[in-house]
Design a binder for these strands. Structure first.
Length: 464
RNA sequence: GUCCCCAUCGUCUAGCCUGGUCCAGGACACUACCCUUUCACGGUAAGAACCGGGGUUCGAAUCCCCGUGGGGACGCCA
């Protein structure tokens, strides 16, 4: 097959959401799989609703997800590729030229100040009950689409439609087709919501005397709760939200590609190279998929767990840096490098997401940490906790803090000496030192916190 | 209302094209147990689905039809 050229063509009229991201991802994967070209084209013909902020959000989100584009805005030095410009707002001359061809060939006409595409066939007027108006129907044969995912789809498109608005701005259907022709796009991979537009597009291709590219309409992502497809307003829909919450882009990408595609068999968690190798259009499902944030969270945890320590530390630092207004984050960032790294080493195997980090690690960075009242009540109700705390204070004074095993030995010896279990000391020590009953191993906590702070906190609780 | 698409556990899905190997496999979630120095991770186990009805066939989750359900589109939005 000739060189594959696919495009992702978002319009900067709102936040960048999960559905768009997955469409971009499938296009990108197909390009990478086939060794083709991935084009980013900005469909900013709706002057009313476009915004530069949303445009930047598209760039940022794609970059964050790792979906680099070969042609498009921000690529290289001059023009971003051989078929630019890649923003439709800058391609007016090209559209005029194509519209003129239609006008000259009798395939378009002017009415009410707008330009309409003309269907070829017998015409008659009918009253449309649903739209409450009289419309002109044209007797045309059905458009046949050989969709790469859905198979053969037939649809009758029997009304002329506007291609240039009365204010002179071209309409989506026109620019979309013109650009796909001009940019030599070979495969149109887009959401199924465009399937019913496709009949218009095929007519336009035919009007321009061009064979349409291959179509592949991918299933939609349905909102997690309630009916309908996911939209920008739905819970968990925004890419920037995951970015802000410290999700790993590779986890999100892996999760997203599993929504509506599968590599066959039981494989789920896969490195991106493997996904690229396996991805192909026949593996894409035909049915819509419901978004599941639990599974995404699980995927994220799996990726977090296997992240090299250096990268985990970097991610954690990033996360804290983005919450600089929080006292915990400020304290964490102010901590010495070695301590920060040590705390992260204890946390990485335990947390499910970076979001947990502030609450999970606060006591390492400040003495002013929260104490869970329920845990306190429970722990302090058993036996003589204050006695154990005093014994711990004494033991800590001479304990070897150089390694977890040394600390463990010392605590075990203490428990044995008093005829109690390790857990009896562990629970009060944990409460004193961290204010809660969840966290890394007690020995790790002791070691990283250091003798002085551990002793002070044990004394504080013993004397309370 | 019209047109188009879709239909396997609660969710994502394997199997469907090339009917028998499927009293339907995996993952997430849920439950129980194990591991354990708390909490997680991990391990084991359990429950949980072929939308309904017709047909074709010796045989249907798999093929066909109808129904129902879900989704989408019907803009001088994209």
């Amino acid at each position: 097959m000739s060189h594959v050229r696919v495009r992702f063509a978002p319009s900067p009229t709102g936040f960048f959401h999960i559905g768009s991201a997955r469409t971009a991802l499938f296009n990108w994967l197909y390009a990478r799989h086939t060794g083709g070209t991935f084009i980013l084209r900005i469909e900013d013909t709706d002057k009313e609703r476009n915004s530069e902020a949303y445009l930047n959000l598209i760039y940022d989100s794609l970059r964050w997800l790792g979906l680099n584009w070969d042609e498009g805005p921000k690529v290289g030095g001059n023009g971003g590729g051989d078929f630019g410009p890649y923003r439709q707002s800058e391609r007016g001359a090209i559209y005029r030229e194509y519209v003129d061809r239609l006008l000259a060939g009798g395939r378009a006409y002017e009415k009410d100040g707008a330009i309409w595409f003309k269907l070829l066939g017998e015409r008659h007027e009918v009253f449309d009950e649903h739209r409450k108006k009289t419309v002109t129907k044209v007797k045309v044969p059905p458009v046949v689409i050989e969709d790469r995912i859905r198979g053969r789809v037939e649809r009758v498109e029997d009304e002329d439609f506007v291609i240039v608005r009365s204010d002179g701005n071209p309409v989506f259907h026109l620019v979309n087709v013109v650009d796909d022709i001009a940019m030599k796009v070979t495969h149109i991979i887009r959401g199924e919501d465009h399937l019913s537009n496709t009949s218009k597009h095929v007519h336009l291709y035919e009007g321009f005397g061009v064979t349409p590219p291959a179509f592949a309409h991918i299933p939609l992502i349905l909102k997690q709760n309630g009916p309908g497809k996911m939209s920008k307003r739905d819970q968990g829909a925004l890419i920037e939200e995951y970015q802000r919450r410290g999700y790993l882009p590779e986890a999100l990408v892996n999760f997203l590609c599993l929504l509506g595609w599968n590599p066959g068999g039981d494989r789920e968690k896969m490195p991106i190279d493997e996904i690229i190798r396996l991805f192909d259009l026949p593996g894409v499902n035909q049915s819509n998929a419901r978004f599941d944030d639990k599974k995404l969270a699980h995927m994220n945890m799996a990726y977090l767990l296997e992240l090299p320590a250096d990268r985990f530390v970097a991610q954690a630092r990033d996360y804290f840096a983005r919450q600089a207004d929080s006292p915990v984050a400020a304290a964490a960032l102010a901590a010495p490098e070695a301590q920060f790294r040590a705390v992260m080493a204890l946390s990485q195997p335990k947390i499910k997401g970076l979001e947990e980090l502030p609450a999970y690690t606060a006591y390492f960075f400040t003495d002013d940490f929260a104490v869970d009242p329920k845990v306190r009540e429970k722990v302090m109700a058993k036996g003589d906790p204050k006695a154990r705390l005093r014994e711990l204070v004494a033991a800590v004074a001479t304990m070897d803090f150089s390694s977890d095993t040394a600390i463990e030995e010392a605590l075990k010896a203490l428990a044995t000496q008093h005829g109690l279990g390790f857990g009896d000391y562990q629970s009060v020590a944990r409460l004193a030192v961290s204010g809660t009953n969840v966290g890394p191993s007690i020995t790790g906590m002791f070691r990283v916190l250091g003798r002085e702070r551990v002793r002070a906190r044990l004394e504080r609780l013993a004397g309370s």
